[in-house]
Design a binder for these strands. Structure first.
Lengths: 147, 147
DNA sequence: TGATTCGTAACATCAATAGTTACATGAAAC
DNA sequence: GTTTCATGTAACTATTGATGTTACGAATCA
């Protein structure tokens, strides 16, 4: 499979939207992300279903953020996207008869569960507002460097 | 992509080999894993290159473990397999010009790096000998239940 | 009514593991 | 040395899920 970049994509899109007052069309967001408007609609649709954004049709329509940036964590976005699989590595057989394979699975599952818990905790600690502030900092640094 | 189960497969194969004195053929291991002998040879080939197993051709040939079970950690096996990608999730663009995307990438990379470090530490703490002991425990439990 | 934009179906593309077939190479036994 | 068994490896297909693309219907506003 290709690597799943939907969380990255939605974050990128949301931060661009946060920098604007007017709605952004799928076409415009597709330009920002370097992808197709249909892909944008498909992915952002999950956030709409979770109530994090709204979409208006017709002229002057497009996507708008419908939540407080401080309350939207990466974890909430991951959940909104349907909690896609985090790991590319896994057990060969999830419910083996073989006792050897059961031992192998148990050991791997322990390790992956711990890593997943840590990742989701980290995700819970980072909000869109945090990312917006980080972007503002980078933006100010670049301007300072250019002057 | 399909989920990568090579670490799981090699662990399963190695533990079956550890339970025996004589070499095991790719055919026999394929039966244990429910897969094709060629797949076994392909995957075990990495362990051979790392010096963890040897393969003898001809009649009475097959695969043998060439290392102390106490010294072979899951991490060492992961490395022997070429350190395949751990995460199914990633950044959309690894070297973006866009400052927004740079902020997004930085946040995600931090979280993923922490989770990967934890996972590899866990992997380093578990050896084939540990798994063999766990298997022996499960085996004794099953026999006790059956009597 | 016409232009704009989302919503969605349908299909093609891509990437990496897994599976399969075929055959060359090497080792052991007779 | 011929036969048999097993690995080594190339070449190809199957699988899986995200991503990309085309097409068109539905809603909104001037």
């Amino acid at each position: 499979m290709k690597r799943d970049s939907r969380l990255s994509s939605t974050l990128h899109a949301l931060l661009h939207m946060a920098e604007r007052d007017s709605p952004m069309t799928s076409e415009a967001l597709g330009q920002c992300l370097g992808t197709n408007p249909v892909v944008v609609r498909r992915t952002m649709g999950h956030l709409r279903e979770a109530g994090l954004v709204t979409a208006d049709r017709g002229p002057a329509g497009g996507w708008r953020i419908a939540a407080d940036l401080e309350t939207v964590s990466l974890r909430r976005l991951h959940e909104a996207l349907g909690e896609p699989a985090i790991f590319a590595i896994g057990n060969r057989n999830e419910t083996p008869e073989c006792l050897v394979e059961q031992s192998v699975n148990a050991a791997l599952e322990d390790a992956f569960a711990a890593a997943e818990a840590l990742l989701l905790d980290r995700f819970a600690d980072v909000t869109l507002a945090d990312l917006a502030r980080d972007f503002a900092r980078r933006h100010a640094q670049r301007r300072a460097r250019q002057e």
